[in-house]
Amino acid sequence: MKSVAFGQYYPSNSVMHRLDPRVKIVIGIFYIVASFLCKNVLSFALLTVSALVLILVSKIPVKIVLKSIKAIIFIMIFTAILNIFWTKGPEENLILHWNFINIYVDGIYNAVFIAVRIISMIIGTSIFLTYTTTPIELTDGLERLLYPLTFIKVPVHEFAMMMTIALRFIPTIIEETEKIMSAQKARGADFTNGSLSKRAKALIPVLIPLFVSAFRRAGELATAMTCRCYRGGNGRTRLKVLKTTYRDYLALFFIAVFGAAIVLLNIYAPGYTM
């Protein structure tokens, strides 16, 4: 059950971990855009290399990265098959014709390209945003990035605080659920056998105590925050002030060069174009 918690943060001390979360969010978005700009063999090759470099730089074990890819393997295969069978190319590219099935070289190219794009995108975003950034850093960064919205009266701080609290309590509530389930199992509750409606009904003894304790916790947290004089974001200073260093500028520079390289390769390189 612990695996459900999406606190996939992988503790380490790589350069990637030490980047400013704001910069990582910006780069993450930029990386997704870049992966959509890729159009031919060379630019996709660069994208693949960049994903491998990211894994190396962030020092995340390949095994763990593969796990996150495993989750989307079905979608990938599905889109690849759709592409192979449904892409129509010029007549001379037809390589297989059987009844109503026509397979073109273009379709195979497209299937491979899209698979590479999805994989790189998943690797890129998960490395920038989940593996190397704690959820708290992430919401901190988001709050700072969205700060300009406060001028049009968007309660950015409040949203960020809500997100932080929600993330903070996911593991706690999972632990609580496990505890309550064990307690009810000790009283003979059965969550695995029986019809669907029976199993749904068996969850009542878990859900009621869970809600009660969630509300209790929320009340206690509110009291504790009030006791420490929390009164929203106005004039609030931070314990950890986000600071950009030369590293962050270097990272931004790299991603800019990377984007430019992809655009250039798209223009000049020969071969099949998507």
């Binding site: 307690a183 009542i204 105590p209």
Partner: peptide, 12 residues
Amino acid sequence: GLVMQYPEYQLF
């Protein structure tokens, strides 16, 4: 029969 820690949180 097992009474877990803080069993009052299992009442429903």
